[in-house]
Amino acid sequence: MAEQTRTVPADQWRSAVAAAKEEGYDYFDWLGAVDLIGRTDDFEVVLRLIDLDAQRAVLLRTTIPRDDPHLDSIADIFAGAGWHERESGELFAIRFTGGDPRRLLLPEDHVGAPLRKDTVLAARAGIDWPGAKEPGGAPSRRRMVPPGVPEPEIWGDRDPSGPQPASEEIAGSAVGGRVRRRRR
């Protein structure tokens, strides 16, 4: 199946989706989001549509700023997109204007957006991480920091009245695999 990618500005998202549907891409496959922290201060929203008759597909991509992540809903163009928008909205804190704002997966009292890379995975910070495997299968004796847990200076032991860390600091710090430092 031939596939092409189109990058569209966020303010033309709905019209680009409607135009693709008019071109014969009338089967909604999926919609998802990607956190681009560390590369840009944006989220990327990706949509895949298929033309079953011509056996071709198109990926529509757009970027939205992380400080005000909103995009027009396409659920009235493709009904199946509603679930995907709710999922991305809940897990990345993206608002789909005109879409269904109800919770889908997380409880109503949940705070935060768990798939944003600047969201600290507190459960991982509180549980000892076994560490990486050495070549040959023997476990490392060094305790490693799990993925998703930033350095203490970024999250935890930093001065709360100080400036917030930059997205590059968070992304660079939260990759995991670092040796856990002993607290004194």
Rank of each mutant, 00 (worst) to 15 (best):
T5Q: 11
W129V: 05
D128E: 15
S167K: 11
P101N: 06
R61I: 00
I127F: 12
I37W: 13
R158E: 07
G172W: 00
P135L: 12
I154S: 00
Q4E: 14
P9C: 10
T63W: 02
I154Y: 00
R14N: 03
R102N: 14
L59E: 07
P9S: 15
M144H: 14
R86D: 03
R103G: 06
W83R: 14
K21E: 08
T40R: 15
Q12M: 08
A81C: 13
S167Y: 14
K21Y: 05
P69W: 11
W83Q: 09
V46Q: 04
G148R: 11
D35F: 01
R182Q: 09
R141W: 06
L59Q: 08
P152N: 01
M1K: 06
L115E: 06
H110L: 09
V58W: 02
F28G: 05
R142D: 14
E90Q: 02
I50P: 00
E90D: 03
A166R: 13
D35Q: 01
R143H: 12
T97H: 06
R39S: 13
Q164V: 12
E90A: 04
K117Q: 15
I154D: 00
S140L: 05
F78D: 02
L121C: 04
E153S: 15
P130A: 07
P114F: 00
L31I: 01
P101C: 08
G137N: 01
E87R: 12
D53P: 09
A20E: 07
Y27R: 12
A113P: 02
L47K: 03
L31H: 00
A79H: 09
A10H: 07
W129L: 09
D11Q: 13
A125I: 07
W13L: 06
E87L: 05
P152R: 04
P150V: 11
A166T: 15
T97E: 15
I170H: 05
V8T: 14
